[in-house]
Design a protein around this nucleic acid. Sequence first.
DNA 1: AGGATGATCGTCT
DNA 2: GACGATCATCCTC
Length: 199
Amino acid sequence: MRLRRLAPGSLPIETESLARALLGCALVRESVDGRTAGRIVETEAYLPDDPACHAFAGKTKRNASLFGPPHRAYVYLIYGTAFCFNVSSERDGEGAGVLVRALEPLEGVALMQLRRAVASVRELCRGPGRLCEAFAIDRTLDGVDIVGDERLWLARGNGESLDVRRGPRIGVTRAATLPLRFFAAGNPYVSGPARLNEA
DNA sequence: AGGATGATCGTCT
DNA sequence: GACGATCATCCTC
């Protein structure tokens, strides 16, 4: 499959715009075991001065990537069991980012199945922790430049436009009602409860 | 040094 | 739908 890198500078900096722009792009992971790729179908924006954003309480060692230049990976461990992958946003020095919640598998399905021990293609990357496991994304990739890196990078979408909807973010306890989750309507690879994927 | 917390997942009913 | 696993990180003492 032909995967073409995003042109440098083609992604927006502002958080909500970035969350929208990432939908439809392909995420590509190159590892010693081979390549996996998937189309981004669900994202969540975590804004500056957003109580739900990890950057809200200030810069720490863990969340430093959120405060760096835009379009860097921010990877962290949640509940001791799963990694979550984000793309940093806003200018250098400002803490914000976009969580990637679900991918539609495009390439390397067998490798994903090996890593996840799950046969169902639908479940391979349906959820932030699942996609990180399928793509072997962990803290060693924290901070990489998602546009220029060789191991983890973004590719252009295939041109077909997605029907983008928005709604409340999943699993957050603070600022729970803000409609900052973006997803492709009707796409079976989108995570979250069905009732939130209709509107 | 110790305790609370959490942007999840898989399993069970 | 409910619940427990599991641990890096951060805050407080």
